[in-house]
Design a protein around this nucleic acid. Sequence first.
DNA 1: GTAGGGTTAG
Length: 823
Amino acid sequence: MLSLLKLAPICKVKLALRVLPLHQCVHRPFSAVANSIALTLDDFENKNKAADFNVLFRSCKSVDVAKRLHAFLVVLGKAQNIILSAKLVNLYAFLGDVAFSRSTFDQIQRKDVFTWNSMVAAYVRSSRCREALNCFNEFLSTSDLRPDFYSFPPVLKACPNLIDGKKLHCWVVKTGFEQDVFVAASLIHLYSRFGALDDAHKLFVEMPVRDVGSWNAMISGFCQNGSAAEALDVLNSMKIEGLKMDTITVSSLLPVCAQSGDMTSGMLIHLYVIKHGLETDVFVSNALINMYSKFGSLWNAQKVFDDMKVRDLVSWNSIIAAYEQNNDPITALGFFKDMQLIGIQSDLLTVVSLASIFGQLSNKKNSRSIHGFVMRHEWLDKDVVIGNSLVNMYAKLGDMDCARIVFEQLPVKDIISWNTLITGYAQNGLACEAIDAYNMMTRCSNIIPNQGTWVSILPAYSHVGALQQGMKIHGRLIKNCLYLDVYVNTCLIDMYGKCGRLDDAMSLFYEVSRETPVPWNAIISCHGIHGHGEDALKLFKDMLAEGVMPDHVTFVSLLSACSHSGLVDEGQRCFDVMQREYKIRPSLKHYGCMVDLLGRAAYLDKAYNLVTNMPVQPDASIWGALLGACRIHGNVELGKYASDRLFEVDSENVGYYVLLSNMYANVGKWEGVVKVRSLARDRGLRKTPGWSSIVVGSKVEVFYTGNQTHPKCMEIYEELSILTARMKNIGYVPDYSFVLQDVEDDEKEQILMSHSERLAMAFGIISTPPRSLIRLFKNLRVCSDCHNATKYISKITQREIVVRDSNRFHHFKDGFCSCGDYW
DNA sequence: GTAGGGTTAG
């Protein structure tokens, strides 16, 4: 056995190292393996066959194997060898165990520059920058040795800021190491890392000799600062000098192609990759997957992934994120399961994707497991991104209480944390909470709002009709000369439109860039909710004339605009054009608009046919639209059918019970009304609280239905009593079918009177000068009885009253409403 | 005997 191993090739030793139990390496030192290693060592020390020994080091693919080799070196008395000991420090760092590197390092009695360099580099490799710098300082203060040009690249990499970087740079210049290509590349990288691209470029230009690494350092510097054009310029000069892109050039460039939307350059680089066989590099393939994912080209991303021979965690994270970010959480989840199956451990970024996947899937159970997983690993303290993704996950599940709890627990909150919270509130219809959160954020001095903040707070302001606050933001953006992207501008257009300033919305619309459908959709929608269907159609024509491609949102805005204005033929034409010319498959939202459009215009049969022939399963909004139409046109039979279907899919929305009750009442079927009431009572309804807001002075006042805590409560109810009496004198008859509670008529009258829109209106009347205009906002659709009452109130008080509900604007004047009771 | 420049995020 011994003699066999003596002559055996190095691979037998490698095998033995992998399978030998550790204690055998320590306690039976002169085994065959030890002898064989001893022989290899002899060769190594005699400089004859050093290559064999390097092979041995390289073959250590895990800390365990490294420990066995280490144990043999100890018993062979070679652990203090100046080269071997430093190699062990390196080896442990490569295998990800910097603690072992350090303990090995500490045991080395005689340390030379190589030893110290190895330890500093080991820390840098493990992203322990502070320890790396401490170690470097220890090196300077405890030894008589001077750093060499190998010392600087790792130290420059660990440098935490530009000031220290500049000091190091001076030192490098003094020692003359600036001429070294490795050191120079590190300096270029350092300057770019802190955004000092001019300094980086100056260094680069002044270099007497440049290798591919130097070019790469400059290109990646521009890339990481998002300067795609400059990066491509440098690339061109590099080509002119006859140098070829390598895997590092390519993997620096691909992300900026994605960022700047330059698909052509991205695909050209992919062709280059294929031609030069660079796709075997994991970094390159990973970067390609990410680029294609950002372009929404999942087929290409998948192809690259499938063709990979070796995949790492980043590859899996990338393909999971690709599907997750392109709205295919199911496939993304499939990849996650495959990844688990082959035993790859998730990291933080995997979990970020998973949180988004379960949020998209509304999977509460798995979402909680993800939360638990994060807590067990204490990742909430490790990185703010993971916490933000949990806040976002709960917001998507509609569970803002949990979202808030996670948010409060974040040890560090950045601007994204705040934006996520604000958006979460706003998108769950909790505009007031969104505004509160925004106000809290403005009190944090270290948080600077960004585009994302405006995009989340402006819709909240539009939602409650806080025009003045919205204008304050607009003013702030103009004053600070902030560049407004198309989304912020669109939010402003939407805000002005929804706060009743259609003219301001239009003038802003004509000022902004209109190359994408985004601002068009907003302005079309604004005209729709104002009941200006013809104008909405005209804008759509203008949009096509300017060569802007409509998307699915355009048609939702357009169809609902037609619906609000009773433009049946035009609506049907749009629905047809959308599918035929623009190949947009109708979503539930489009079908909802169509059912609404046809139903309200009394084409109940057509609406019913559409619902039954839809290729997608109708949801509550579809049946609700049909029920609403049946109520208007008194079709009890179809209404009953629609409500039965409706309660199968959503039995908890109190609004639908009100509709049904009102439908029975309108045709005098009182037993139906009673039945609906008891049904609603039995089911213990979850009621969406109705609220209305009004701006008086600069203050937004919010009234909930039945509110009795307002400081002016007494005066409000008194005003309402007086108004009700006067309304009755000129013909107002309360419609009790909107009251689901089973109580006496006078109590029902009280309930109607305490509807939030009436409280807000009465407050407006007593708080503003006579005959001035009143603007109200209601979170739900305005109730029919309140609509009717408002007509009378506008006549009695001789005021214009503008009510914006969740659906559209109602402009009351002199006893009439602009919607012509068609809403 | 060591070192530079690269891929994934809410």
